[in-house]
Design a protein around this nucleic acid. Structure first.
Lengths: 240, 240
DNA sequence: ACAATAGTGTCTATAAGACAATATATT
DNA sequence: AATATATTGTCTTATAGACACTATTGT
């Protein structure tokens, strides 16, 4: 029997075959009344030329976790950090990547479109695609499935939290939050229910400003600093 | 520019350094009015002799996904497949394993104690530990944290589903389900609320049998075949 | 009959759904 | 003033909480 120190001295990490490990993210945003996902064109093999999720390999020298990898890759593409980033699931198996047995840690994220639009339009290999148009596209690997899983999770969580606020700019009106929620859920919701939650959540504060959208001015709000997302104990739209 | 076929021909998977990838599972069960977790004693380095979660490396020749790896490892230890198995999260970073940058795909699972007790007692390197006693133990790696995350998820999901039923034997009484739920949540619940959910879920059917526990006989139930878990749109214990 | 556990009835409390009513801008 | 959007009021509905009540079995 050897000690742990001796064992580690002689440990050779390349001795055991290992699956191909990647980190991929589904970044959602709202643009022109539609829910969009960020796709990037694959610059190299395999599946060169196909569009897929932003992501890639873990940089073990830099990344302190797969969250760091996801953040690094998203920031490279968008120029900013997402407002919300949460682990979705991992997807694995021998057939999902032609190079062999692979595993991807999938994250999903939300960002305000205005926060990253300028950067995205300046790079040619990334673009926002409305989720409704995804079926027509042949995506790389199993990225279509990953996006669908992320969409289910986004919609589910929207039912018991105010997650859509992370798609809005720093300051926003209650009507914008309602619109974002309705676009994500794909159906109208009761404004009164939303406002009740908005107040009960304790997540927001008024900026003191207001803004006009053609008629009566609406108050502007922002997320309080360092206040976590509030989860409700009931779902919206529980019967529909 | 080369074709994908040419690229794959010359692809060498060992060219890029890769994190150490494992799959670990938190298997819950109920025994003597306590919620327990299955721990195994590490037979080899690193952290030899410490207790940790059942798990290990992916066998790329056998496993069709990390779910298959988790199932394989749990079946080795318990002799049976868990009734419930769901992905929890992945845990990753340069410091969680002394061998270097590592990633574990963590699953959580539920099983009836009677279903696997005979097998467990016959192997000396596995045992059930009440969750209340975990704080006193020094577990391998970050397995203590993983168990706590699994426990949070188990309790959360118990609030909006009848998940505890997967800890019960094949046939069971409503009182057993109530007891299991109360043990997991750590507090009493309203029997009436549970029964309402039980009926609304559509998950169960009577066996026709009943069983006596000292007084009036209780009806026995089983899960309907191929019926998925039902998720409710409100939580139990929402105010407490 | 009594004790003990199984199972039901029903009233209250909470938060969502529905939608009417009022308020404040702009023109 | 008319119109449009913002914001609030309040009645209804659905389901959980509380807890009393009835049912069935063993002694």
């Amino acid at each position: 029997m050897i000690s742990e120190a001796e064992y580690l001295d002689s440990y050779d990490p390349s001795r055991f075959p290992s699956p191909l490990v990647t980190v991929d993210s589904v970044l959602f945003s709202l643009h022109q009344q539609t829910l969009c996902v960020l796709l990037v064109e694959r610059a190299s093999q395999p599946q060169q030329g196909r569009w897929g999720l932003p992501g890639g390999f873990i940089d073990m020298a830099q990344d302190s976790s797969t969250r760091a990898t996801a953040l690094r890759k998203l920031t490279e593409k968008t120029g900013v950090s997402p407002s919300w980033l949460e682990q979705l699931d991992t997807f694995s198996g021998p057939d999902r990547d032609p190079r062999g047995w692979s595993l991807t840690v999938a994250w999903y994220a939300l960002i305000s479109w205005v926060a990253c639009a300028p950067h995205i339009v300046s790079v040619s290999d990334a673009k926002w695609v409305p989720v409704a148009e995804l079926n027509e596209r042949e995506l790389a690997f199993d990225h279509g499935e990953i996006i669908h899983a992320a969409l289910r999770r986004l919609r589910q969580k929207t039912m018991y939290s105010l997650l859509p606020v992370y798609c809005l700019p720093e300051t926003f009106t209650q009507s914008q939050l309602q619109e974002a929620t309705e676009i994500i859920l794909g159906q109208p919701i009761q404004r009164k229910s939303l406002i009740r939650r908005f107040e009960a959540s304790g997540m927001f504060e008024e900026t003191g400003e207001s803004v006009a959208t053609g008629a009566r001015k609406a108050r502007l709000w922002r997320r309080k600093a360092d206040v976590d997302i509030h989860l409700f104990s009931r779902n919206l739209l529980a019967d529909s």
